[in-house]
Structures are given as structure tokens and as C-alpha cells.
Design a protein around this nucleic acid. Structure first.
Length: 401
DNA sequence: AATTCGGGGGT
DNA sequence: ACCCCAGAATT
């Protein structure tokens, strides 16, 4: 019977079985997965942009982008990034604003800020080349135990573990471990267990990638593995004991905080008001539209902006939007605000608003300023709000004409 | 040991 | 809704 949600490419290569009467020890089991996994990986590895020429820089950039991010999402970002910043020096010398624009939409923006810092340190302390050891790599900002192991093994051929979410799931299932994969101690123990396996496999970079590739394409999460396609199913204790639904074990996460906000798209003469977010915290240093906590009415909005700008304004509703972060949920209400008169408009808003919003053209917002995806629903209205249209043109964020 | 960092796709 | 993702830094 075909496994639900799986493709039908059954694995027909090298497979290892064990005598049920004399099961392998935990150590033996892990040692024996290397051969089949390497064989499988060479035959079926996905072709990925960062695999064609795995220099330390290429592997580094790809691994940072891939942190908590799917391969498919990374591909276009990686290509554009490499085109613009082909080496460590270019990265170190790039402006933060341009880096954030290259990262726009990818999320976890401290990743790219840390990468610039690390590039500066590499020029300063390592002669412009990434350190060739896991310990040296891990001293750099943004490189933790996983990424250090990934670069060390893939780019330098060193037998270092690279334990990510995929590997935690794959190894937990193969060994039928019920240890909570959310615990740091579980990850640490797994890294130590994998060391001798990597030291004896001959191709540590490929084995690390094979473990991840297996997790991403075959040993899928949420109790939906494709065991018929798995090169190590004969060695997998979770499969034999029918525990693939139960393993891996992970503690539940706490609920999100809900924040209500009202977003203002203030447009005048082909420009829109934007402001820079604080340098620390959520979406640090990205650009946003002026906003206020809570859900405001159009009447409140009109009064507020007439007071701020010093001229009469018209207000059109842009509808509601929701954006879900890992730990916060924004529930937004948007309004387009358009001054009725171009005369006597207050040009410098830093005097009246602490966030100091400024006027930016539509093309500047598109090409220069990094705006978080959370605001995409409202950003797409830039340049489409015409004050000569009657307000009935807009209803619940949808253009009726 | 917990919390804080984004965003998107699959179920 | 809830899950997860080639995690790391900070508290």
C-alpha cells in the first residue's frame, strides 16, 4: 500500500537488516547507517545552488539563510545575494540598509547583521578567510554549533556533527529515542553520539547533508514518514516498533501574544510616510508606516492626522489584516490618509512625532527601504489611493472600481 | 532553562 | 489551527 503523502519512488538500493533476536547496540546502529545513507545521498541528492561550488563562503551564506528557513524559500535570495556580494570583503563593506533589503522577507534579520559583523572579524582576524575549524567558526557572530559543524564538514571535510531539526528527528526515530528534541541536552548528546560515526564514514560533509536531506524529503515530521523510500528503514527502531507517530517527542510551545494596531498609509504628492523601527527588538531597523496601538475608528484617524499635518485630510479604510509571528500576532486595521490641501502641510514630522516619519517615494519604498512582510497588505496600496476618487471606491480593503 | 528573534508552506 | 523549517543570541 502506498504511504499517504509520499511519492512512489521506493528505495531499491543498499539496505541493512538486523537479526531480531540479536538487536544492534545503539552505537552499532548509528555506525551502520553511514554506508546506506551515503549511497542513497549520492544517487538522489537534490541539486541546490550552494552545492555546485561549496566554498566556505558559499556554504556559510547558505547555512545562515537556511536557519529556520525552507530550501525553496532560500533559493532566490541566495542567488541574488551572491550576485551582489560574491565574497567576504564585499559583505563586510556593504551598507546595513542594503543588506536588509537583500534579506527583505526572509525573516530573522539579525542573521544578516551578524553575518556582516562576522565578515568584518574575518577580515580583521583571519586574513579574509573563514577559520578552518568548528571551534574557530563558532566564535563568529551568528554561527552556533549547527552552522559551525555544517561549514566545517561540508566546506572543510572535517568530521564535525551538524545537528539541526532534521537530524534530531531522523536519529530520534532510528534509535526510538523519546528524549525531548526541544531540549538543548538532547541535541548535545546527539552531537557526541554522531562524532565517531562521522570520523569513520569517510565523507562527513555528505553524511551530514544526507541526514538532513533524509529528514527533509523522506523522514517527514508530524508522523508522516515515507519509510518505503528510506535507505535505513531496516535499521530504524521507531519503524519496527510502530513509533513513527510518537517520535520525535517535543514539548508544546506557549501561546502567542495578540497585539492590535492601526496602520496609517499617509500619501501626498506621490510620496508616503515611512519611519525606521528601533535598532533592537522585533524587525529591528526595518521600515514601517506610522501606526498606533489599538483599533482606531476612521473618525479618530481623521482628527489625529489633521492635527499632526495641520491641514484637512480625507480618510479611506484599507481593511483589516493579520500577521502571525512565532510569538506575537498582529491584528491590524489600516487607513489611507490623504491631505485635502497641499498648502501649509508640515514637512518635518520629527517635531510632532517621536518616530520621526519622513516622506518616501513609491520607488524608494520598493527599491531602497526594507519593509517587513507583515505590512505587505498595506504596502501594496502605495500609489493606488487617489484622493479624487470617492471613498466608496474602497471597502474592507478591496478596490471596488 | 526560557525567551526572543520572521515568514511561509503543509496538513 | 497547528506543525515545522539545514538555529542563534540574549535573558
Amino acid at each position: 500500500m502506498k504511504e499517504e503523502g509520499c511519492t512512489e519512488n521506493l528505495y531499491g538500493g543498499l539496505q541493512v537488516y538486523e537479526d531480531a533476536a540479536r538487536p544492534f547496540s545503539r552505537e552499532e546502529r548509528l555506525r551502520k547507517i553511514a554506508g546506506p545513507l551515503l549511497h542513497w545521498f549520492r544517487a538522489s541528492a537534490r541539486v541546490l545552488p550552494w552545492r555546485t561550488d561549496p566554498t566556505p563562503y558559499h556554504v556559510w551564506v547558505s547555512e545562515i539563510m537556511l536557519q529556520q528557513t525552507r530550501v525553496e524559500a532560500v533559493k532566490p535570495y541566495y542567488s541574488r545575494f551572491m550576485e551582489r556580494l560574491p565574497g567576504i570583503r564585499e559583505l563586510a563593506e556593504a551598507q546595513e540598509e542594503e543588506l536588509l533589503k537583500l534579506w527583505e522577507g526572509l525573516g530573522y534579520y539579525s542573521r544578516v547583521r551578524n553575518m556582516k559583523k562576522a565578515a568584518e572579524q574575518v577580515l580583521e582576524n583571519w586574513g579574509g578567510e573563514l577559520p578552518g575549524s568548528a571551534a574557530g567558526l563558532q566564535k563568529l557572530p551568528g554561527i552556533g554549533s549547527y552552522t559551525a559543524g555544517a561549514i566545517a564538514s561540508i566546506a572543510f571535510g572535517l568530521p564535525e556533527p551538524a545537528v539541526d531539526g532534521n537530524v534530531l528527528r531522523v536519529i530520534s526515530r532510528i534509535t526510538a529515542s523519546r528524549a525531548d528534541i526541544g531540549e538543548a541536552s538532547t541535541k548535545k548528546a546527539m552531537e557526541q553520539e554522531l562524532r565517531p560515526v562521522l570520523e569513520n564514514c569517510g565523507q562527513p560533509g555528505d553524511l551530514n547533508q544526507a541526514l538532513m536531506e533524509l529528514g527533509a524529503t523522506v523522514c517527514l515530521p508530524n508522523g508522516a514518514p515515507c519509510c518505503d523510500s528510506c535507505p535505513v528503514s531496516g535499521l530504524c527502531l521507531a519503524k519496527r516498533q510502530n513509533l513513527t507517530e510518537e517520535i520525535p517527542v517535543k514539548a508544546p510551545k506557549k501561546p502567542r501574544k495578540i497585539e492590535e494596531k492601526t496602520i496609517f498609509l499617509v500619501e501626498w504628492d506621490g510620496a508616503v510616510l515611512v519611519q525606521k523601527r528601533p535598532e533592537k527588538g522585533l524587525l529591528a531597523s526595518l521600515y514601517e508606516f506610522p501606526w498606533k496601538a489599538g483599533k482606531m475608528t476612521d473618525k479618530d484617524t481623521k482628527e489625529q492626522w489633521q492635527a499632526i499635518l495641520g491641514v484637512p485630510v480625507s480618510v479611506n479604510p484599507l481593511g483589516e489584516a493579520k500577521h502571525i509571528f512565532t510569538h506575537i500576532e498582529w491584528r491590524m486595521t489600516g487607513y489611507a490618509v490623504v491631505p485635502e490641501s497641499a498648502d501649509h502641510i508640515r514637512p518635518e514630522l520629527g517635531e510632532v512625532l517621536p518616530e520621526a516619519p519622513f516622506w518616501a517615494s513609491e520607488s524608494e519604498v520598493r527599491e531602497r527601504y526594507s519593509v517587513p512582510s507583515a505590512l505587505r497588505t498595506y504596502a501594496k496600496w502605495i500609489g493606488k489611493v487617489k484622493k479624487d476618487k470617492p471613498r466608496s471606491c474602497y471597502s474592507a480593503g478591496k478596490q471596488l472600481l
